[in-house]
C-alpha cells in the first residue's frame, strides 16, 4: 500500500515547523516517528498534502529532571523512555507503559509527543500521562502554552491543538506512589481492548478504549478519596464512559473489563 502523494518538508526547528503549519494550514501534518500516521496514510484514512518532518529537530529529544517533574521532549522515542534510568526512577509507570507499546521496532520510531498529538483512545501512553496528571507544552506562532492532559483530548483522534501548534514537551510529575497498568488484549502487540492505569496510589485512574478519548475514572477516584475500598471504587470505574463496540468487544463487555481491571490495578498498586 502506498500513501497518496504529498510534499515533504523538513523543519530544522520548532519555529520553522510552526511557520510551515501556518503556511499550509490543515492540509499539513507533522511527521514525528510516523508509526500512527504512515499506516493511516497507507490505508488512505489520512491524506495530508504536506508532511513536515520534525524528526531532525535535535533539541526536541531529551529527558530532564526539573522542579518536581520530568521534562520530556516531544520527539523522545518510546524506546528512550522505556530504557531511561531517570524515568524508571522518577516516573516508573511511564517507563513501564512505554515498554508495552507495539513491539520493539515500533518503539524505536514512535514518539511521546506523537502519540499524544495522535490522541488515539486505544493507545497506552496518552492514558498513562493522563493518570499521572501530566502537562503538555504546545508551541504556536505566539509562544507556548501549558495544557493539563485532562483538558487536552476533545474527541476521537482530536485534541485542543490548533492547526499551527505543535507539542514540544511533556511534563510528568515525579513520584513513586503506588501505580499499576493493566492492558487487556488477546494477541501480542495489539492495542488494549480495555486498559486501566492507576497512578499515585489511586489519585489518578485512567481508562483506555472506553470512549472517544482517554478518560479519567473520576467517580472511582472520588470514591477512593472518600474512603471507599478498591473493590467498591472499581465498581464505579465505568461511570460516565461510553465505550465503542467492535469485533473484540461490545459495550457491556468493555464496561465489565473496566471494573475488573480497575480492581486489579488498584490492588496491584497497593490500594486496599
Amino acid at each position: 500500500m502506498i500513501p497518496a502523494a504529498f510534499d515533504y518538508k523538513v523543519a530544522d526547528s520548532a519555529e520553522a515547523a510552526i511557520a510551515m503549519l501556518g503556511e499550509y494550514g490543515d492540509e499539513a501534518k507533522l511527521l514525528a516517528g510516523g508509526h500512527s500516521l504512515i499506516p493511516m496514510m497507507k490505508f488512505r484514512l489520512a491524506a495530508p498534502t504536506v508532511l513536515v518532518d520534525i524528526a531532525r529537530i535535535d533539541d526536541l529529544s531529551y529527558i530532564r529532571q526539573e522542579n518536581g517533574h520530568l521534562a520530556i521532549g516531544a520527539m523522545t522515542r518510546h524506546t528512550a523512555v522505556e530504557h531511561s534510568d531517570l524515568v524508571k526512577a522518577e516516573a516508573p509507570m511511564l517507563a513501564h507503559v512505554a515498554s508495552l507499546v507495539g513491539d520493539p521496532s515500533v518503539r524505536h520510531r514512535g514518539t511521546l509527543g506523537g502519540t499524544l498529538a495522535h490522541s488515539d483512545p486505544a493507545s497506552d501512553l496518552p492514558a498513562a500521562v493522563l493518570a499521572l496528571g501530566g502537562t503538555i507544552v504546545a508551541q504556536g506562532p505566539n509562544g507556548t502554552r501549558e495544557i493539563a492532559t485532562a483538558d487536552f483530548f476533545t474527541g476521537f483522534f482530536e485534541s485542543v491543538l490548533a492547526d499551527d501548534e505543535m507539542i514540544t514537551e511533556v511534563r510528568i510529575p515525579t513520584g513513586t506512589g503506588g501505580w499499576n497498568y493493566q492492558k487487556f488484549n488477546r494477541r501480542a502487540q495489539d492495542w488494549a481492548i480495555v486498559g486501566v492505569g492507576v497512578a499515585d496510589g489511586g489519585k489518578g485512574i485512567s481508562l483506555v478504549n472506553m470512549g472517544s478519548t482517554p478518560l479519567r475514572a473520576t467517580a472511582a477516584e472520588e470514591a477512593l478519596a472518600g474512603g471507599a475500598s478498591a473493590a467498591e471504587a472499581a465498581e464505579l470505574a465505568a461511570e460516565g464512559a461510553s465505550p465503542m463496540e467492535d469485533t473484540n468487544a461490545d459495550a457491556a463487555y468493555r464496561t465489565h473489563l473496566a471494573k475488573v481491571l480497575t480492581r486489579r490495578a488498584l490492588e496491584a498498586a497497593g490500594v486496599a
Partner: peptide
C-alpha cells in the same frame, strides 16, 4: 536504521 530495528514498510525512504 542507525543500528536499531525498524519496520521498513512504515518508514518513508526520505525519513
Amino acid at each position: 536504521l542507525d543500528g536499531q530495528s525498524v519496520k521498513s514498510c512504515t518508514v518513508l525512504a526520505v525519513q
